[in-house]
Each structure stands twice: as C-alpha cells, then as structure tokens.
Write a protein that binds this DNA or RNA. Structure first.
Length: 120
RNA sequence: UGAGUCGGACAGGCAGUCGCAGACCUUUGGGUCUGAGGAAAGUCCGGGCUUCGCAGAGCAGGAUGCCGGAUAACGUCCGGUGGAGGCGACUCCAAGGCCAGUGCAACAGAAAUAAACCGCCCGACAUUUGUCGGGUAAGGGUGGAAAGGUGAGGUAAGAGCUCACCGCCGUUAUGGUAACACAACGGGUCCCUGUAAACCCCAUCCGAAGCAAGUUCAAAUCGGGACAUUGGGAUUGCUCGUUCCGUCCCGAGGUAAAGAACGCUAGAGAUUAUCGGCGACGAUAAUACCAGAUAGAUGACUGUCCAAGACAGAACUCGGCUUACAGUUCGGCUCAUAUU
RNA sequence: GGAGUAGUACCCAAGUGGCUGAAGGGGCUCCCCUGCUAAGGGAGUAGGUCGUUUGCGCGGCGCGAGAGUUCAAAUCUCUCCUACUCCG
C-alpha cells in the first residue's frame, strides 16, 4: 500500500482502543486516532467468534482490498483499527467495501472531492 | 438391468485488469519463476530434531495385549487364527490370565457359591381339610447368573445314578514358524457363576519437556545489606547416587529486549520404470527441486464454460489414527432377474 | 503454535459402579409477622421431553453429545463438542 503501513503491535492497538474515537455499523467497528505522522497505519482485527480460520482470513483480505482500492481518498495521519463483527461472516466484497466507506465518511476521514487535493 | 460390497482418482477450469509473499535477474522503471490440504483440522499415538540432572540404580507410574510379519517407530498397516453378523461379495471384534491370589455382585429370591419356598415321593398320626419326620432336585417362581444339554434306561419319586450323541477337561499323535486345527484315548468329585474398560498376575515397551524447544548478537559493571553449609537448579512422584551454582533484597549504571538473525525447509521426501514379496513393504535406476510467512503471503473485479464448486488455510518436520465433507468418475467382486 | 483443566436443575454445587423420586444451599411460590415493605420464621415446588390420564399421578429418556465394557454407568474406556487457564 502506498501511503499506509500496517498496525502491528498489541500496545498500539490498545492505545487506539483506549484513546481513539469509535463508530460502528452492522458489519464493522472502527476506531481511529491521530498518530502524529504523515502516513496512516491500518489495523484489522477479526475475533475467533466470527468463524474458522478460512472465514477470518477471507474477511481480512476483503478489508485490506477495500482499503487499498480507496486509499487515495483517505486523509493521512491516522491510526485506524477495523474490527469485524460476526455478521460479516456471510458478507460479500461489495457489502464490506460499502460498510468501510460508510464508516470513513461518517468520521470525515475521506477527502472531499471539491476542496483539498490529495498530496502526492 | 437392478440391488449391494470393496478399493482408487479428482476437489471448479480458462482469459484479462489491479494486488500479496519468497527466490533470482535488474538498465532501479521493473521483469521471470514458484506459491496451502485430503484432511493443512482434532492434538489421539509414534519417530526425527533441540535442551536438561537422559544415555546411573531401585521403587512407583504409564502404555500395549490372539499369532506371524512390515517399519525409524507406533496404539498403525499387511497376512493368518478364533468369535459375531450377512444368502453372498464382505464387514466388525481392547480377542492374554477369574484353574495364582484378593475384592465386588444392589434389589428380588428359600438359597448367590451355597441350597429347598411351592412342588414330587415315602412313612407315622389323623382321615373333610391336614400335621410331623425323611428322601429328591425333574417341574414352578426370583434373578444378569441357580452345579452342562438332548434322548433313552432307571426309580417310591428323582438324580451323570447308568448309557448314546454333543459340549467341557486332561494326555498323546499328526499338520502348521505360531495362534490354532483335527484325530484317538481317558475322565461323571464334569470341583464350581460373572466381573480384569475391579485391584492384580504374566509378557513387551517407555528419561522428561517441547521450535514460545534452543543457539548467536550490545553494554554486560559497581556499591550496600541480609542469610548462610545448608539451600537452589522449568523438565509428572519418591529414595539413593552423580554433577553444576553461593543465594536473596535494595540502589546505581545501561540497552536494540514491546529486538534481530539462525533453527526454517533437500526430505526414513516426490514422480516414473524394473525387480523381489500373497501383501504391508523393500531394492535398484532415472528425473526434477516443488510454500517458508513472522500480526502472519493465494485475494478482488470482469467475461466465459460446465457437473454450478462441499469440508476447510501450512507456522519445525515426518509416519499413522480420528473427525468434517457438495458431488463427479474409474475398477474388482457378490446376489437377483432376463437372454444365449 | 504448544501444554493443561472443567462441563450435573435458573445459579453455586455434593455425589467415584446398585434402595438417586439426582444430596445441600441460593432462587421461586404460598402462609405467619408488619399499617405497608425489607429482614426473620414455617411449608411447598423442583427443570425438560415423550407416552398415558379430565386431573392427581404412573412409566420411559435425560448428569455437554455419541458409541462401548458391565446384569447394572453421572461414575469405567474411547471419539467428538463447548468454555476457561498457562507459555517467550
């Protein structure tokens, strides 16, 4: 991914959970917080309650793909953690993508089309 | 043709665009190749590998359990024996020993390893019914289980009391590596229920822990106090033996440790062929190198074909077992029916 | 990834082969006490499902699920499922 690295350490996850803002819809829960850098860090969490390892890795891939394809439109400088809920088990790629974009839009993390331009 | 049984194979394919991991090449733009499973799962067994106090002893503990073989090893597999089921092909069986010892067997039942409740028969008394004494274990009843079964003789009634056959036990002969099979002879004190997934006995095997094992990489030092020849050492229990280390607390200093690399994938391996073996399997030769991540790589979209895609994701590794699974397909064999 | 522990009624749980109608406590229902409640005291119900019965009741199954050993299993053996704990 061009502007983003993945969020890896458990203590970073816990920091985002405790200090960040959260929002949820039917499929996903999202936490985000400013990280003080120029790039984003993106973390995915899928609990064992969602399904077996095939289901979990499939959801992980769908979330990563959705983020990758809309990365140019996301504001920089944030740590973002996305948690899959149990209802994401049967969701298709379209549903996952629209759910992710919906949450990003509600938190005003998307760049507006008319105003500021994406820094290259 | 129908029904069945056993064994094997496959596990969506193709094209385009965008993307992921590793290796190699690179003109640093990128390019080429490779990239999950039959169960990768459960972690139920057994090996390799690593470390430790293994590679010392004893006890305890655990596992396996018809016989022979295969194997690195196994609780697995193959071939046989015995038993159970099926017309059959075939399938299933923790299948050593309660004739070594000990324990347990509730309730019911007269009695549970030792007998006589109802019966049956004989005798005495009484004689309508019955009472007492003795014999008996065929019948009834209880129970999971009541001192072998069927038939005949025998008897007061009965009884292995006697006989025939079957079963059981013992000895011997024959076949087989063996489990065992089969035959002959003898045995009626044929002396004895079940349970060993009860303790136990017998035979064989087992050191323990696990890649979060472990190895390497920086500065790795100083001060104070306390305890002391006893104490400690991840590694199922106890005793002995052997071996190593002083231990604990507080403070300073310092770090990359909320690390990095190795272990980490070339192997008791895979494919093909030939040979040996009934088979599990073994031997030889040739061919190619075929995932290796470290928050964890295989996905998304579009088109198209069909049988419309199940269960499901490597985490050191290998051999098994068990469990889950849409379907498609191939082959062997059995039975029934029809035709020849 | 690896190692281990547990599962019994709504909850906490005892029970380690046989008279268990599954002990006991909490809870729940009713009564007493009080002007009313809480606390306290007493009694009762125990939960599910199937069959039968107008009903009371009786019988079968049921101790996470399924097989097996045994005359007999919550208990012994095996295979699964679920929950929880530990590791550097």
């Amino acid at each position: 991914m061009l502007f983003t690295e993945s969020l890896k350490k458990n203590y970073r996850f816990r920091y985002v959970y405790s200090r960040g803002r959260s929002i949820a819809n039917r499929l996903l829960v999202m936490y985000h917080i400013k990280n003080g850098t120029q790039s984003n860090r993106y973390g995915i969490s899928v609990s064992k309650k969602v399904g077996n390892s095939v289901v979990r890795s499939r959801i992980t891939r769908l979330l990563r793909e959705s983020y990758r394809l809309s990365e140019q439109n996301i504001k920089n400088g944030y740590d973002i953690v996305v948690i899959a809920r149990a209802s994401a088990k049967e969701a298709s790629y379209r549903e996952i993508e629209s759910a992710l974009l919906h949450l990003l839009r509600k938190q005003r993390l998307l760049k507006t089309e008319d105003g500021e331009q994406a820094p290259k």
